[in-house]
Amino acid sequence: MSAPDLPHAPAARQRPPLRPNLVIGGAIVLFLFSVALLSLVWTPLPPTKMQIVMKLKAPLEKGLFGTDHLGRDIASMLMAGAWNSLSIAVSAVLLGAAAGTALGVTAAARRGLFEAISMRANDVIFAFPPVLSAMMLGALLGTGRGTAIIAIAVFMVPVFARITAGAAAQVWARDYVLAAMSAGKGRALITVEHVLPNIANQIIVQVAIQLGLAILTEAGLSFLGLGMAPPAPTWGRMLADSQTYLGTAPWLALMPGLAIALTVFGFNMLGDGLRDLLDPREKGRS
């Protein structure tokens, strides 16, 4: 979809051919996914292998980024952590996006009481930050990958429901939808044939942006011990473990945090770039 050529748009507004945020964000995300996938088949050392004699070695003294308090190789743990973080974030966002979109487009198609109730329910769910729902679920089900995914996904539902309901309502006001209705098409068919293709771009942009948030949330959950169970390495728990050794081994606190920040930065840049590319009306909005 290209930008509409508005007659009054000044020449200066034309987008430059190369979008740096799209390129930078895309490169970072691609790199991280490659590392995560690579970690499934190869890491310098097994990420859970403990060598107590080699504990708390500085970067380059043993391995690229040193070793932790149990002598595990930090570089290998970071790689495996990339897979753990990304797989949780991607599953949670896709799950939340699917449920939220279904809710949003249904609300826009049915209007009336369904819309009122589902949007009110969104307000209720939005009052539970993932950390709280993960704690509630964690107390009942125990913590782990599944609990983290559910907690993050639940929070994503209202985000996507709101955006898609608004966008879908705009599509429903269009003449071609009216034409489709007078041709006898049902609301479900119109949603699939007209509404979803027209709001797909907005959903894609939002998925990229929410992936950044999901990575941050997953890191926070595993920092608190609400993420994947040990010994699976996660960036969040590596940071939690580093706290004890801040004075003696400060490098432990550095790399996992940088990894999280780089990932979130990458997804945010990608989201911004995609928005400029796919959703020009929203250009410049944050």
């Binding site: 940071l239 801040l246 999280i260 920040a261 780089l262 930065f265």
Partner: peptide
């Protein structure tokens, strides 16, 4: 602002503690 958004607050807390306390 992109940097602020991307950096996890609890990590900033750790680094601040490292520099100003430790």
């Amino acid at each position: 602002s992109q940097l602020f958004i991307a950096v996890p607050g609890f990590w900033v807390g750790l680094l601040l503690a490292l520099v100003f306390a430790v």
